[in-house]
Write a protein that binds this DNA or RNA. Structure first.
Lengths: 136, 136
DNA sequence: CGTAGATCAATCGCATACGATTTAATCGCA
DNA sequence: TGCGATTAAATCGTATGCGATTGATCTACG
């Protein structure tokens, strides 16, 4: 069954990342957030959630933990008090740099070549977007 | 990044299953357990965990909930009191039958043809087994 | 100008997941 | 035979995830 294989493959990927991230004190979703903010700092929670496909009920506690760890700040947008703006601290940027090698180390673990990885990623993106289109 | 795409695709699959399973009162992992037992009843927790790649710390509470729902029984193996044997009840078998159409309904949602599904499943299985080989 | 509706984040409840540990039972080897 | 090593399941603590709801803020329309 595809569902089961996809499920277990996702968990295997999760497990493979864990030893790479654990020395940095990061969990897997926290790493995704850090990488996203390192790429584009000052994002709002909404944008971040849309790109990572996570809801506020997941992000709020996750971001609070990252804030408590001193990696980012959560501040209200002065122009719209409903919005929360996320900014990396110096510690957060340093951590993101230390995590820069993680994707390469992971790719090595998979044993797949870059073309295979790209193909697989593209198929999965099609599947995902078909099942759950990104919000408008 | 492959990791993120795989992660979000797995969650999208999870989300796509939810509306199919919710009328049956099943969650997604519970459905996997039910399907596995319907295929091979009387499995031990260890075998089930190996095939679903779940540990006892996840399975124990999950199975207790399914037992509480009256779908299966958990009994000790008389030959080895450490082992727990899982057997579907009549209600469990009935439920499994009612869930028989779920994979087809899901496949339809994906918009992929059977060949594409098979190919994707095979690639994911290779990836998973490379990252996290099944226990001996 | 004012309020109904929309939007965003936060909260609540529940169900996975997993690492680490604990407990109980069996096995293997001297 | 008997005890240490191994195995299986359960338990504990922590971190996601998500559906549903709530509360605060903003927007749009009359």
């Amino acid at each position: 069954m595809l569902c089961f294989t996809l499920h277990s493959a996702a968990q295997a990927v999760h497990s493979a990342y864990t030893p790479l991230l654990e020395p940095l004190g990061l969990t897997y979703p926290q790493y995704l957030v850090l990488a996203s903010l390192a790429d584009k700092d000052g994002q709002g929670m909404g944008q971040l959630g849309a790109s990572l496909r996570l809801e506020s009920n997941t992000l709020t506690p996750l971001l609070k933990r990252m804030q408590a760890a001193g990696w980012l700040t959560r501040s209200r947008d002065p122009a719209d008090d409903r919005r929360v703006v996320l900014t990396l601290t110096n510690d957060g940027r340093t951590l993101a740099q230390r995590a820069e090698d993680v994707p390469r180390a992971f790719a090595e673990k998979t044993g797949l070549n870059p073309d295979q990885i790209r193909d697989l990623r593209d198929v999965l993106a099609v599947l995902r977007n078909r099942l759950k289109p990104a919000k408008a």
